[in-house]
Amino acid sequence: MKFIYPAVFRKNESGRYHGFFPDLACCEAEGDSLEDAIDNANDAAYNWIYAELMEDEMDLPPVSDESDLTLQEGDVVRNIQVTIRMYDGWDE
C-alpha cells in the first residue's frame, strides 16, 4: 500500500533542517541538509504508519492539503511517499 503525507521542513539556527508531519502526531525528523532531513522523514513516516497499521484498531489520519497548512516564511513542503508491503508475496 502507498501512503503520501505532506512534511514541512524548517531550517533552524544551527543550519540543520527539522521536518514534521502535520497529520502524523509526533512524527518528526532532522538532517544536516534538506536532502538528509527528507530521507530521515521518509524513515520516520514509514515507522509511524507501520506501527499504526499493526494496531487492532488502526486510525490513519486524513491527508492535509498543502493550502491548509500553516507555514512560516522559508518552510519547504514535500509530499513523502511510503510503501508498505502488507504480507509476503504482495506487491503493488
Rank of each mutant, 00 (worst) to 15 (best):
M1T: 14
M1A: 15
K2L: 14
K2N: 15
F3S: 09
F3E: 06
Y5Q: 11
P6N: 10
P6C: 07
F9V: 01
R10D: 06
R10P: 09
K11V: 06
K11P: 00
N12G: 05
N12P: 02
E13A: 15
E13P: 00
S14Y: 12
S14G: 07
G15C: 12
R16C: 04
R16W: 13
H18C: 10
F20P: 00
F20H: 15
F20A: 09
F21C: 05
P22Y: 09
P22A: 10
D23I: 11
D23Q: 11
L24Q: 08
C26F: 13
C26T: 11
C27T: 13
C27Y: 06
E28Q: 12
A29H: 08
A29L: 07
A29Y: 07
E30L: 04
E30C: 04
D32T: 00
E35Q: 13
E35S: 15
D36L: 09
A37Q: 03
A37W: 01
I38Y: 01
N40V: 00
N40E: 11
N42L: 01
N42T: 14
D43I: 13
D43N: 08
D43A: 11
A44F: 01
A44I: 02
A45H: 01
A45R: 02
A45V: 00
Y46C: 01
N47Y: 10
W48Y: 08
W48H: 08
W48M: 05
I49K: 02
I49P: 04
Y50G: 00
Y50T: 00
Y50I: 00
A51R: 05
E52N: 09
L53E: 03
E55A: 15
D56S: 13
D56G: 14
M58R: 15
D59R: 13
D59T: 10
D59F: 07
D59I: 04
D59L: 11
D59A: 14
L60K: 07
P61K: 04
P62N: 04
P62E: 09
P62I: 01
P62L: 01
V63L: 04
V63A: 06
S64T: 11
D65M: 12
E66Q: 13
E66M: 07
E66W: 05
S67G: 05
D68G: 07
D68R: 11
T70Y: 08
T70Q: 13
L71N: 12
L71K: 11
Q72W: 08
E73G: 03
D75Q: 08
V76F: 01
V76N: 00
V76H: 06
V77A: 05
V77P: 01
N79G: 10
N79S: 11
I80M: 07
V82H: 06
V82P: 05
V82K: 05
T83S: 12
T83N: 11
I84Y: 10
I84N: 10
I84S: 06
R85C: 00
R85S: 06
M86W: 01
Y87F: 07
D88I: 05
G89L: 09
W90S: 13
D91I: 14
E92D: 15
E92F: 14
